[in-house]
Amino acid sequence: MEPRPKQIEAAAAAADTALHGDVLDAIVSRVSPLDLLPASRVSKAWRTAVLSSPRRPPPWFILHHLGRRQVAAAFDPLSRAWRSLPCAPSYPSHRQGPQTQQVSSYMLSPGGGTRLCVLSVSALALATDPFGASWRELKPPRYSRTDPVVAVVGTRVVVAGGASDLEDGENAVEMFDGGASGAWVSCEPMPEAFRWSESISSAVVGRRLYVLEKQSPFTLSWFDVDSRRWGPARGVRVPDPTVRHAAIGFANGRLLLGGAGGIGTGFGWRAESVRVWAVDEESLQVEEEVGSMPRAMVEELVGDGGWGLSSLGFLSEGRFAYVYNPSYPKDFFLCELEEGGGCRWESVPRPACMEERPTHRVVVGCCQVGVEDLMMGKDRIV
């Protein structure tokens, strides 16, 4: 015999009495948001605990395939499972075809993490949720750009680099301040050291956007959104002289640099190590080593299909960072920065969708996913 509604209410009330306050918060902090979604419907007390919990679970890793048939998947670290997003992101209505837009990701503050963005000749659209279900549309920047750095710093949207040299503005920086002018304003251009940069890594820390040239020799600088000016551009002296590829992120309250070192020269170079260092936000100098990826994982990162490692993917949020090979986006690794120092590494199960579509362009991101996000996209997640 199925329980009656009154019996269910009585059971929920009893649970509320037995589990409340810190006990309920402790339970919530250890459960995946996917499992908390049905728990939030048990009673008002459970719903309040689920939605108001101060917990900071590991960020999800999200893949978007940009082939003719777009597919997306998300990895939930707490359940250690990939979840299919059967519907492609709901791109803004100004889209007219794959040739008219650029889909990438943008940095988000506070806390780091990334979300989808779409740049076209008619608009810049920023996803306002982790899965691309809702968007904020802005007028396009003045300069047409290819793969620029896009970041939200506080209430301001910053677009840097990527402009055509035909427009004499390849280092141009523009900022949209929704709380003030409500329009794009020109800022000091990127430092000259980034004029010919083909690959830039970025991180948002406080009121600054940090950018790093990802290939050796490495140059690091920062842009202040309040003064609209750049700080000094300085060469980064990595303690390991064999590091050829690097990227930056912000995790556990510190600016971090991940670097891939190896042996050989030219096309014969092969990565043999991946290490993470802390970086001083003012001097831009590398400080102590935070952790090192196990050798077996480095070999998986490089790949067995002859791809090698031509760049290092490094995405971070909270106390966690994901490391991956942009040229071989099948194997991903999660790094947890421990409170007492050091890192704990784990391999992410290989997503089935990557086996099916290994050649399509992929946009990746990582961000916190809460129960409220799942409520918004409950019909999109399997």
Rank of each mutant, 00 (worst) to 15 (best):
A88D: 08
R41I: 00
R357F: 13
R228P: 03
G21L: 06
G261C: 05
R228M: 14
L374D: 05
M1I: 10
L257T: 00
A15R: 05
S122K: 10
I381H: 03
G262Q: 07
L63F: 15
P3I: 13
S52E: 12
S347E: 08
R115K: 15
W222T: 08
G253L: 02
F218M: 04
V152G: 01
A73V: 15
P232C: 11
A88N: 00
G340V: 00
C87T: 12
Q102A: 08
A352G: 12
D129I: 11
L220Y: 08
N252W: 00
L36E: 02
H65I: 10
F61P: 05
G235Y: 04
G67Q: 05
L19E: 03
S311N: 15
I248W: 09
A172R: 08
A296Q: 06
L337Y: 00
G262T: 01
E289D: 01
R80F: 03
G169A: 15
Q7T: 11
E300W: 07
L138C: 11
S283F: 04
D22K: 06
E356I: 10
G341N: 05
E213A: 11
R41T: 13
D280T: 04
S186H: 11
W230G: 02
D76F: 00
E281P: 05
G178D: 13
S197K: 00
S109Y: 03
P57G: 10
V323H: 01
A203C: 12
P140D: 12
C367K: 04
A14C: 10
A18I: 01
Q368N: 06
S199L: 14
A14G: 01
R319D: 12
V211W: 03
Y324M: 10
S79K: 11
V149M: 09
A14W: 09
S201N: 06
P326G: 07
P326V: 01
R357M: 12
R115I: 08
K6A: 13
V362P: 02
G178L: 06
L334F: 01
G249A: 15
D129H: 10
P77E: 03
V121N: 13
G261N: 05
T242N: 09
D25Y: 11
L19Y: 08
V236E: 01
A45S: 14
W184I: 07
H94C: 15
S104Y: 10
Q215D: 15
G154C: 06
V42E: 07
R208I: 00
S310A: 12
S79E: 09
L138A: 10
